[in-house]
């Protein structure tokens, strides 16, 4: 196939055409070469530091795992004890205050009680949640002692106090507390008299204690990693780990036999 004359003309003239680059182009080229060399060093430095970080994390994780194993059994025992204690406290509270329902008339000037009484408790707990309290034993004691107190005049204050002392409560749980119809019924009358009918809040507290107590029995250092490990650890039930360990030991025993 013969080449088109036009194509041939342009090919002959332009195929080997040379255009001398500017000095600026050479400067750019030199920079690119230098950057490329630097890039290798950065890559090496980055990989070395990554390795170091990975090693540090691995070391810390393994250290934490050993401490968890040590505390798991005691934690579950303490958790069970605390629940038992709370349950017995409830019984005492029930016997002390027989009327389950208390009707109270509270007179307010203008604003309804619902927003005034309940919301501050939520806020306080949220703050505590952010602080991420680590010492759980103290918190637990607070819970139990407050549960011991019988039903007194201002129930709302008591709820607020008890929630103050609870270290780690999720928002969903809080909503459950506020909106749970069985435990708390708030009726807002037209004006200015508000009748508040509520049942004992003990059941609610027991649930809260159950949720929070086992989680906080281990004493954990502050820090981002520890927060993550703490939350991860709270997912694993101590008894579950113990049962795994038992199963493992049984396996080894069998092998020994």
């Amino acid at each position: 196939m013969t080449k088109h004359k036009l194509d041939q003309l342009f090919k002959n003239k332009l195929e080997q055409v040379e255009v001398t680059p500017s000095d600026a182009a050479f400067e750019k080229f030199s920079h690119r070469i230098n950057d490329r060399k630097k890039g290798y060093w950065y890559y090496i430095a980055a990989s070395v530091s990554l390795l170091a970080i990975a090693a540090a994390v691995f070391w810390q994780v393994s250290e934490n795992e050993t401490s968890v194993q040590l505390t798991d059994d005691s934690r579950s025992i303490i958790a069970k004890d605390s629940l038992r204690k709370i349950a017995s406290d409830e019984m005492i509270a029930q016997s002390n205050s027989k009327p389950e329902e208390v009707n109270e008339k509270i007179v307010f000037d203008e604003t309804p009680a619902k927003s005034v009484k309940v919301q501050p408790a939520i806020k306080r707990v949220e703050i505590i949640e952010k602080q991420n309290l680590s010492v759980a034993i103290v918190a637990k004691e607070e819970i139990t002692t407050e549960v011991k107190e019988p039903l007194e005049t201002d129930r709302f204050n008591m709820i607020a106090q008890s929630t103050d002392s609870i270290p780690d409560i999720s928002e969903a749980e809080l909503i459950a507390i506020v909106e749970e119809p069985e435990t708390e019924e708030i009726e807002v009358k037209p004006l200015p008299v508000v009748t508040i009918t509520y049942k004992s809040g003990k059941k609610k507290k027991a649930i809260l204690a159950e949720n929070t107590a086992p989680r906080d029995t281990t004493n954990i250092k502050d820090g981002a990693f520890n927060k993550i490990f703490n939350s991860a650890r709270s997912l694993a039930d101590g008894s579950l780990i113990a049962s795994f360990r038992d199963a493992k030991e049984n396996l080894f025993n069998k092998n020994d036999d």
Partner: peptide, 14 residues
């Protein structure tokens, strides 16, 4: 770069 930059710039500019 010295040997081919002008030739290759000739290509690019087309």
């Amino acid at each position: 770069y010295e040997k081919y930059s002008a030739k290759m710039l000739g290509v690019c500019i087309r």
